[in-house]
Amino acid sequence: MAGSRDATASATHALPIQLTVVVPTLNEVGNVEELLRRLAVALAGVEWEAMFVDDGSTDGTAELLTGIAQADRRVRLIRRVGRRGLSSAVVEGALASTSPVVAVIDADLQHDETVLPKMLAAIERDGKELAIGTRYSAEGSTGDWDAGRLRISQFATRLASPIMKTRLSDPMSGLFAVRRDVLLEAAPNLSSVGYKILLDLVASAHRPLAVVEIPYTFGTRQSGESKLDNMVALEYLELLLDKSVGRFIPVKLIQFGVIGGLGVGVQLALLYLGYDALQLPFRTAMIMAVIGAMTFNFTLNNVLTYRDRQLKGAKWLTGLLSFYLVCSVGAIGNVGIGSLVHQQLGGVALSGIAGAIVGSVWNYVASGWLTWTRR
């Protein structure tokens, strides 16, 4: 009993954590130990913890961190199953912390950890709500980026300007610190889409934030592979859409509609191929074209619109069959509503558009529930 009381007393008198550093990871086994070493040096004199959020690493990252955390109480680990995404990982890590200030840094060693004490001081001492590391200042630098990557980043920054309540020189930055209460205030409005959690934060906050920008030089990845791929651009556009029109129209519905429009083109092309080029009977060519268009729509929606619920293997086939069923019912609704509008109001264009809208909305809602349902 005496030993238990001593342990409780020791824990009670431990200094409170000043800073939680959230580190999203996915296959970063070669970097985490070096990152922790650098954090220990940079944050000497600061009561800190590192909150690693792992999205199903297969290279031993989570196992390595588990061993480290058992020996070092400053290291904590959240293992996520069936969920991925840097932004949502950051949000989960921040919500699991209790410190008054939360910082975010990548595990790939490309961010400069030595600016973290400046960020903490700006928030604790100077009363700032948000401190960001910027690559776009006189003292900052994008490092060894080529001209093409720099132009893309600058263009993305300009696209973000209309949705930002707080003006930032580098809203794409993944290195920043924020008061935890500010993040909690914005949390219900966060999209948690893609990689740009800082942009999501300043677009979701109810007001402009008191911010300071601290220059740093973007480094070079030392180990592992970059997580940037073609999906990053799509996720960025999704975030911009969500913060601009998402309150009126779901972003997935917009994506579903765009893919449906492409599907119309596929259907017409297949109809021409079957009827004119292959000389098939019109009914046969039409059936082939409709099935082809539905297959095209399903495949693209599976990869893009519902990639967070993407169907693979046997589930892909059952999902395709359920999508056929949903779209068949949608086609009946399309024809029925179109005919009703034509009877009541006349006008071929108006009737066709009304039927198409009803059919599309049905397909979107029903396929989200039946085909890409979350179980």
Results as ranks from 00 to 15, higher is better:
residue 1 M to C: 14
residue 1 M to Y: 11
residue 3 G to T: 11
residue 5 R to I: 12
residue 8 T to Y: 14
residue 9 A to Q: 06
residue 9 A to P: 12
residue 10 S to I: 15
residue 13 H to S: 04
residue 13 H to E: 09
residue 15 L to E: 11
residue 16 P to E: 11
residue 20 T to L: 00
residue 22 V to L: 03
residue 23 V to W: 03
residue 29 V to T: 05
residue 30 G to F: 08
residue 31 N to G: 09
residue 31 N to P: 14
residue 32 V to H: 06
residue 33 E to G: 06
residue 42 A to E: 07
residue 42 A to P: 14
residue 43 L to R: 04
residue 46 V to M: 00
residue 46 V to C: 02
residue 48 W to Q: 11
residue 52 F to W: 13
residue 53 V to N: 13
residue 60 G to T: 05
residue 61 T to H: 08
residue 62 A to E: 10
residue 68 I to H: 10
residue 69 A to H: 12
residue 70 Q to D: 09
residue 74 R to L: 00
residue 84 R to H: 05
residue 87 S to Q: 07
residue 89 A to S: 15
residue 91 V to Q: 12
residue 97 S to W: 02
residue 98 T to N: 10
residue 99 S to M: 07
residue 106 D to S: 15
residue 106 D to R: 05
residue 107 A to N: 01
residue 111 H to S: 03
residue 112 D to A: 06
residue 117 P to G: 01
residue 117 P to N: 02
residue 120 L to V: 07
residue 121 A to G: 05
residue 125 R to W: 09
residue 128 K to N: 07
residue 132 I to L: 14
residue 138 A to M: 10
residue 138 A to L: 13
residue 141 S to N: 12
residue 142 T to D: 07
residue 143 G to N: 04
residue 143 G to F: 04
residue 145 W to Y: 15
residue 145 W to I: 13
residue 147 A to D: 07
residue 147 A to V: 12
residue 151 R to Y: 10
residue 153 S to G: 08
residue 159 L to P: 04
residue 161 S to V: 05
residue 161 S to Q: 13
residue 162 P to E: 01
residue 166 T to H: 09
residue 170 D to R: 00
residue 172 M to K: 13
residue 172 M to S: 05
residue 173 S to D: 00
residue 178 V to N: 01
residue 179 R to E: 12
residue 180 R to L: 03
residue 182 V to G: 10
residue 184 L to E: 15
residue 190 L to N: 01
residue 191 S to E: 04
residue 197 I to T: 11
residue 199 L to S: 01
residue 199 L to K: 02
residue 200 D to Y: 06
residue 201 L to E: 00
residue 204 S to H: 10
residue 205 A to V: 03
residue 206 H to S: 10
residue 207 R to H: 14
residue 216 Y to N: 03
residue 217 T to V: 12
residue 222 Q to N: 09
residue 226 S to R: 06
residue 226 S to L: 09
residue 227 K to Q: 15
residue 228 L to F: 14
residue 228 L to S: 08
residue 231 M to W: 08
residue 235 E to S: 14
residue 238 E to W: 13
residue 239 L to C: 00
residue 241 L to K: 01
residue 246 G to W: 03
residue 246 G to Q: 00
residue 248 F to Q: 06
residue 248 F to S: 05
residue 249 I to C: 03
residue 252 K to A: 04
residue 254 I to T: 12
residue 255 Q to A: 05
residue 258 V to W: 10
residue 275 Y to P: 15
residue 276 D to F: 03
residue 278 L to H: 00
residue 280 L to I: 05
residue 283 R to K: 10
residue 284 T to F: 01
residue 287 I to Y: 08
residue 290 V to F: 15
residue 291 I to K: 04
residue 291 I to E: 09
residue 291 I to R: 06
residue 295 T to N: 03
residue 304 L to I: 14
residue 310 Q to P: 10
residue 311 L to Y: 15
residue 313 G to N: 00
residue 316 W to C: 01
residue 317 L to A: 12
residue 318 T to Y: 06
residue 318 T to R: 15
residue 319 G to E: 04
residue 322 S to A: 13
residue 331 A to Y: 13
residue 332 I to E: 07
residue 335 V to M: 09
residue 336 G to K: 07
residue 340 L to M: 14
residue 343 Q to L: 08
residue 343 Q to K: 08
residue 345 L to K: 13
residue 346 G to C: 02
residue 347 G to M: 00
residue 347 G to P: 03
residue 349 A to G: 02
residue 349 A to S: 04
residue 351 S to Q: 03
residue 354 A to K: 14
residue 356 A to V: 15
residue 360 S to R: 05
residue 360 S to V: 11
residue 367 S to K: 07
residue 367 S to Q: 09
residue 371 T to R: 12
residue 372 W to T: 02
residue 374 R to D: 08
residue 374 R to A: 08
